[in-house]
C-alpha cells in the first residue's frame, strides 16, 4: 500500500516535470530557429538550409534602410532611458518615503501605463501630438516611450529601496551630511543596481516598442521594430530574421545583466 502510494507520487512528479520541460521547450525552442535561418546561404526561409553563410548579416549592415532604423532606435531609446531614469528614480525615492497607504495609490497611478492597451495610448498621443505640432517627429516617439518606460524604472528602483536601511540616512545626517550629500554618498551607491536594472528595462521597452511607433512615427522617422513589422507583414526575408536574432541577443544579454544585478540586491538585503 505504502509502496504503491510512493510509486504513484513518483509517477506524478515525473509527469509534472515532463510537462514543465515540454512547456519550457515551447517557450524557447521556436526562438532557436532564427539562428540557422538567419545564417542561410539561400533566399528562402526553409529548414534545413541549403548552406550557411553570413551574406544576410552583410546585407543588413550595408543596407541604409536598416542602418537608419537602427540609428533612430538607438537615439530614441537612449534619450528615453536618460529621462525615464531621472524621472523614475526621483519618483521612486519619493514614493518610498510616503506612508504605505499613499504609496499604494501612487503605485497604482504609475502602473496605469503598463496595463492600458497600447493602441489606446498610441491613438490618444497621435491626436494630441498632432494638435501641438509634434506630429511624426522623433520627439513625439520619445515622449511616448518615456511614459511607458518610466514606470518600469520606478518599480526597479523601489525594489532596491525595499532592502535599503533608512537608518543609514539618519546616521549620515547625524554625522553632519546635508541631504544631497547623504543621498550621493550613502543611498545612491546602494540603490545603483536597482537604477541600472531600471535603465535596462527602460532601454529595452523603448528599443523593442512597436505599437506607439506605428502611430507616432512617420516615413522620415522609422525605427527598427517598425522596419521589422513591415518586413514580417510584407515580405519575410532572411534579413528580417537577422534583425530578430540581433534583438534577441541584445535582450538576452540585458536580462542576464539585470538578473546578476538583482542577485546583488538580494544579497545586500540578506546582509541587512
Amino acid at each position: 500500500m505504502n509502496a504503491n502510494r510512493a510509486a504513484s507520487g513518483r509517477g506524478w512528479t515525473i509527469f509534472v516535470r515532463v510537462s514543465a520541460a515540454l512547456v519550457f521547450a515551447f517557450m524557447l525552442l521556436p526562438l532557436l530557429v532564427l539562428i540557422p535561418v538567419s545564417l542561410t546561404s539561400g533566399t528562402l526561409l526553409v529548414l534545413p538550409t541549403p548552406g550557411y553563410s553570413l551574406r544576410w548579416y552583410q546585407d543588413v549592415f550595408h543596407n541604409p534602410i536598416w542602418l537608419n532604423a537602427l540609428r533612430n532606435s538607438l537615439i530614441i531609446a537612449s534619450i528615453t532611458t536618460v529621462v525615464a531614469v531621472a524621472l523614475g528614480t526621483a519618483a521612486a525615492i519619493g514614493i518610498w518615503r510616503l506612508a504605505p497607504k499613499v504609496r499604494g495609490i501612487a503605485l497604482a497611478v504609475i502602473s496605469v501605463p503598463i496595463v492600458t492597451p497600447a493602441v489606446i495610448a498610441a491613438v490618444a498621443m497621435f491626436i494630441f501630438h498632432a494638435s501641438v505640432g509634434l506630429g511624426g517627429s522623433m520627439t513625439s516617439i520619445v515622449l511616448g516611450h518615456i511614459t511607458i518606460s518610466a514606470p518600469f524604472v520606478v518599480i526597479a528602483v523601489l525594489s532596491s529601496l525595499d532592502v535599503f536601511d533608512n537608518r543609514l540616512m539618519l546616521a549620515a545626517a547625524s554625522l553632519g551630511a546635508a541631504p544631497p550629500k547623504a543621498f550621493w554618498h550613502v543611498m545612491l551607491p546602494i540603490i545603483t543596481p536597482g537604477i541600472v536594472s531600471g535603465a535596462i528595462f527602460a532601454f529595452l521597452t523603448s528599443f523593442d516598442e512597436i505599437v506607439l511607433v506605428l502611430f507616432l512615427g512617420s516615413p522620415s522617422v522609422r525605427t527598427l521594430p517598425q522596419e521589422l513589422f513591415s518586413g514580417i507583414r510584407e515580405q519575410m526575408s532572411p534579413s528580417v530574421t537577422v534583425i530578430a536574432n540581433m534583438l534577441i541577443v541584445v535582450a538576452t544579454a540585458a536580462i542576464i545583466a539585470v538578473e546578476l544585478l538583482r542577485r546583488r540586491i538580494v544579497v545586500a538585503g540578506e546582509k541587512k
Binding site: 526562438l31 530557429v33 532564427l34 512597436i210 513589422f229 530578430a244 534583438l247
Partner: peptide, 9 residues
C-alpha cells in the same frame, strides 16, 4: 524579448 522577433520565429 521583442514580440516582433518572437512572432517572426
Amino acid at each position: 524579448l521583442s514580440i516582433l522577433a518572437r512572432t517572426a520565429a
